[in-house]
Amino acid sequence: MTPSVLIFDSGVGGLSIAAEIRSLIPTLPIHYLMDDAGFPYGTCSDEWLVQRIVTLCSDAQQRLSNDILVVACNTASTLALDQLRAELSIPVVGVVPAVKTAAQLTETGEIGLLATPATVGRTYTRNLIQQFAGHCRVRLKGSSELVHWAEDYLHSHQVPAALHEHLDHWLHSPVPMSHVVLGCTHFPLLRQELETLWPDVCWIDSGAAIARRVAYCLDQRHIRIPVPDADLSGDCLWWTSEKSEQPGAENYLAQLGFVVSSGSLNRPLER
């Protein structure tokens, strides 16, 4: 059977991780599962989220027989990694805001963490900053707007009209930041627009590091990646709502290569 990776997120944000994995391991088929019925995760209780995330990923793994799971959601990673690793027999890779990288690269000591309000408010995030960026001034911004704008951008390709107003003051007051960590996997989908509006800021995300970790885990398990001319099974897109199609996500994944098959798992919310 052809090796494959399962990428899980609440929405389209994990597609930024999928792009990095495709860039590093071009022939590894991608199975993408988004819990759009539960989106956004920031409004749900931790206990409910853990149960749902573990159930969805376990069911998908039984159905698809993937070789590795990437939890491409910061909220899901901080809550459910331990439970997923206990439940599944495959490697589970989570995402962590790249605070350590930003702290190592900055020369001014002025860095920012742009994430969801839930991630910004978690003790885990504060501990991460204390451990790796104690010598820096780290300014935090929790933005639900950016999550929704990234989802819309994937469909419309229209730059959010309020993007500049939303971030400019935070980026420059009291002094400009040199590096900003994109602490939600949705945000790199807007990276080109962020770089255009603020070219002097170095925008950092963990996508490339996650791709390298996937390659390492597969190598450690002696899983052979298909050669370029192999008969590849293609990428798959699954979602949990009753929607009949997901054109934005399907088009994005199709641009990464291979033929896309897709469908709904029809897993509505049951709180």
Rank of each mutant, 00 (worst) to 15 (best):
E245R: 12
S233K: 01
I210S: 12
G207F: 08
C184V: 14
E165R: 05
Q246S: 11
A115M: 03
H157I: 00
Q158I: 11
E250N: 02
A249G: 11
A150N: 00
Q131Y: 07
A118L: 10
T240N: 07
T240Y: 13
E250F: 11
I129P: 03
M177K: 15
G121E: 07
A209N: 13
V138S: 12
Y153H: 07
L194R: 00
W203M: 12
L182M: 04
H135A: 12
S233L: 13
T123C: 04
R191G: 05
A230Q: 09
S178F: 14
I225M: 14
W170P: 04
V120Y: 06
D231E: 07
A150D: 00
W239L: 12
E145G: 01
I129K: 00
V214D: 10
N127H: 06
E193F: 05
V175N: 11
L182G: 07
I111V: 11
A230L: 04
Q192V: 13
A230T: 02
Q158K: 01
G121F: 12
K141N: 06
R126V: 00
N127A: 04
A254I: 02
H222R: 14
F187S: 01
G183H: 00
A249C: 11
V201N: 09
V120T: 13
Y216L: 15
H157P: 01
G207L: 08
